[in-house]
Write a protein that binds this DNA or RNA. Structure first.
Length: 416
DNA sequence: TCTGGGGTCCTAGGACCC
DNA sequence: TCTGGGGTCCTAGGACCC
């Protein structure tokens, strides 16, 4: 049996945990630059605010209904997530952290009443962190996801925990679950399925294997098995990331190479720091730039390029150099750029890798990077490349809550 | 005026090999 | 007019997730 534990309206709940006066009031959290709505409390959902809604379009609705609006505070959410996950890890010998706000727990061979077990974790997380969670328990991951939806939808009746442990309950759940709400079926496939009359997860399970294979690849047939109670997805060990990205939408359009270059340079620096944190080297990166797609009257342009390195490296200096080489080759004059990003890929561990016969990473850089990382983690970002953008260059974050649980550098300074 | 960010997996098709 | 067969590896792009 698997449990899927999911924090309800996670970012909104984090803001509430430190500001109980927000309970029963609509709360929304905005993306970077205060651009879009990325989290909503139930009350905000009831007001008809959709996920991803542009904040400026909803400003009047926010005011009219006294919606509490917050800029995203990822240091806070990351730290709260860690606390929730730590508590949950006590409820199973095997935990898979699936995202910032949810995890799977392996409950096989556990001699406990599963319903009671779910209720207990929910109660403890709420008491210790103030974050409400929902628990779905079932014999496969996809069914645990479905059970979780039921627990969340009928919190009062279920106590926030729902167990699918008979075929009767499984069928009932599948008939209740709309096909577009099935984990693994996105917008595209949902539309296709709807068009042939498939409305529920149950309908989907009854489709012929051949049709599913032809139209949805093996991913679809695996999902079908999983929903039928045959496990195809197992617990995944937390492994190192396979790619690391830093991408941003700019506050306004950049027209000059130098403006874009400064930002891309900083993206590369941030990526390299994350890369060293997981003790990897990378062999390639991708740079992309995009014009402002909302200015339809402007000339549109977007391009990306993959730069392969002659040697693996985690040196900021070398990675920045490769990123700027890539940027130069795709930058086109006369465009208003609104978004750009750097993605590192093709990783190898930093302690074992194939040396190139002719090229190698500058060995002095490792020591330098180590020194810079230590300084920056201790004092905040103090050591920077001259080519980076100035620190004054800040995101719009007009409604940022305090970092209640960490200091400026994300280091925990408060115990709950 | 203002429209997010960071991941994973799969596949078709091209390049290359014998 | 007819133009082999069977592999592997790589990558861009699509679909999905939160």
């Amino acid at each position: 049996m698997f449990a899927l534990v999911d924090c309800n309206n996670f970012y909104a709940s984090c803001e509430r945990a430190f500001n109980p006066s927000l309970n029963n009031h609509p709360v929304v959290v905005l993306s970077n630059n205060d651009g879009c709505v990325i989290a909503r409390s139930n009350e905000a959902k009831e007001l008809g605010i959709p996920m991803g809604a542009p904040a400026f379009e909803y400003r009047y609705l926010f005011e009219r209904h006294h919606v509490a609006v917050f800029s995203a505070n990822f240091s806070l959410y990351g730290d709260m997530s860690h606390r929730v996950m730590t508590i949950l890890s006590d409820y199973s010998p095997n935990q898979e952290i699936y995202s910032i706000d949810e995890c799977f727990l392996d409950l096989s061979n556990m001699l406990v009443d599963l319903q009671e077990h779910g209720l207990a974790m929910r109660k403890q997380v709420l008491q210790w962190t103030g974050i409400p969670v929902s628990v779905g328990i079932a014999p496969t991951k996809a069914l645990a996801k479905a059970a979780n939806r039921i627990a969340k939808k009928f919190t009062v009746r279920t106590g926030g925990t729902y167990v699918i442990d008979t075929d009767e309950k499984r069928i009932k759940a599948l008939k209740w679950l709309a096909v577009e709400d099935v984990w693994g079926i996105g917008r595209r496939n949902a539309r296709k399925l709807n068009s042939i009359g498939v409305k529920t997860a149950y309908d989907f399970c009854r489709l012929s294997r051949t049709w599913v294979l032809n139209n949805m690849t093996v991913v679809g047939t695996r999902l079908q098995d999983d929903l039928n109670g045959i496990p195809t997805l197992d617990m995944e060990p937390v492994e190192l990331k396979q790619s690391i990205a830093t991408t941003r939408t700019f506050e306004n359009d950049y027209r000059t190479y130098d403006e874009v270059k400064e930002r891309v340079c900083t993206f590369a620096v941030t990526c390299a720091e994350k890369l060293r944190q997981q003790h990897s080297l990378c062999n390639a990166l991708e740079v992309f730039i995009q014009s402002n797609r909302f200015k339809e009257e402007d000339e549109q342009y977007s391009n990306s390029i993959t730069v392969k390195f002659p040697f693996p490296t985690s040196s900021t200096l070398e990675i920045v150099d490769f990123a700027l080489q890539g940027l130069q080759s795709i930058f086109k004059k006369g465009i208003g750029y609104k978004r750009a990003g750097v993605v590192l890929m093709r990783f190898v561990p930093d302690n074992e890798y194939q040396q190139s016969l002719f090229f190698k990473s500058n060995p002095k850089h490792a020591l330098l990077m180590n020194a810079i990382d230590q300084l920056n983690s201790k004092y905040g970002t103090t050591v920077r490349l001259a080519a980076q953008d100035k620190k004054t260059h800040k995101m719009k974050q007009e409604r940022l809550s305090p970092k209640y649980t960490t200091n400026l550098n994300g280091i925990i300074n408060v115990s709950l």
